[in-house]
Design a protein around this nucleic acid. Structure first.
Lengths: 142, 142
DNA sequence: TATTGTTATACTCTATAACTATA
DNA sequence: TATAGTTATAGAGTATAACAATA
C-alpha cells in the first residue's frame, strides 16, 4: 500500500468516526441528561471520586463550568459532595447509586444498539471492526 | 467467531468511536466556532443552499434553535439569507466564500491530524482501519 | 387551515473575572 | 502568595409556546 492513499483513508475514517459517535450519543437511558453531565458520571463511575479541579481538567473545561455541571448532577441526586478531611479547601465529588444505575443503563443501551449492527455482519467484518477499535484505543490517547 | 464475543466488541467499538470523534472535534481552524455552527457549514458546503426547516431537520434540532445558529453564522459572514422567489415564505440559506474557506481549512486540519496517526501504522493496520470505515459508513445511517 | 420563519422565554454549557477559604 | 472552590456575568445551543406572513 502506498502513502498517496492516506488522504482518502483519513477522510473516510473521519466521516465514519463522527457519524458513529453521533449515533451512539443519541442512545441514552435518561433523555434529559446532557453529554457533559454523562461524561462526568462515566468518569466517576470508572475511576472513583475526584476533586472539582481534577474533573475539569479531565474534560478540558474550566472549573466554573464544571462547577455548574456538578451542581446539576447533585440536584438530580447523581453525585454527592463531601469535604476532604486532609485539605479543607478540597471537595470530594463521588457518584451515587442512582448515578451508577444511569451509567450502566446508558452503557447497556449503547452497546445493545451497536450489537444489533455487529449482528448483521459476518465474522470477517466483525473481526475487522474489533481490530480497528483496538488500533484506535492503542494509538489515540484521551 | 461466536456470538458471545459481541458484547465486548460493542464496548470496545463504542469507546474507540467516542474517543476518536472527540479528538477529531478538537482540531479546528476557527477555534471560536462551535460544533453546531460547523456542522451547518459542512452541510451547506457539501449539499448547497437549504431552507431553515431543512437545516433543522438534518441536524435533528428545532427550527428556533437552528435559527439562532444561522443568525450567528450570518453575523460572522459565513452564510447569507436570500428570500426564495417561488415561495415567499421560504428563505434560502447559502454558504459564503469565507464560510467555504473555514470548512476546507478545518477538514484539512482534521485529516492531517488523522494522517499522522495512519502514518505510524503498517499497511495491514491501515487496511484494517480503512475497511472498518467503509463498513461503518455502509451500516450506520445518519 | 397548514407551512415557513421568527420572536419570547427559559435552562444548560461554556468562558473570564473576581471573590472566599485554606495552605 | 498560591491553590481549591465558588459566585457573577455574559454568549451560545437547546427547547416549547406563540406569532406573522404566505400558501
Amino acid at each position: 500500500m502506498s502513502d498517496e492513499s492516506i488522504p482518502t483513508e483519513a477522510s473516510d475514517l473521519r466521516a465514519a468516526a463522527m457519524r458513529l459517535a453521533r449515533r451512539i450519543r443519541q442512545q441514552r437511558s435518561v433523555t434529559t441528561m446532557t453529554d457533559a453531565q454523562f461524561a462526568v458520571l462515566v468518569n466517576l463511575h470508572l475511576h472513583g471520586p475526584h476533586t472539582l479541579t481534577a474533573l475539569a481538567e479531565r474534560d478540558g473545561v474550566t472549573a466554573p463550568s464544571m462547577n455548574r455541571t456538578v451542581n446539576c448532577l447533585e440536584e438530580l441526586g447523581f453525585v454527592t459532595r463531601v469535604a476532604a478531611t486532609d485539605d479543607r479547601r478540597k471537595v470530594r465529588i463521588a457518584i451515587t447509586d442512582a448515578g451508577s444505575v444511569v451509567v450502566r443503563e446508558t452503557s447497556e443501551r449503547r452497546d445493545n444498539w451497536l450489537a444489533q449492527i455487529l449482528g448483521r455482519l459476518d465474522d470477517a467484518e466483525r473481526r475487522t471492526l474489533h481490530s480497528a477499535a483496538e488500533i484506535i484505543l492503542r494509538e489515540v490517547h484521551r
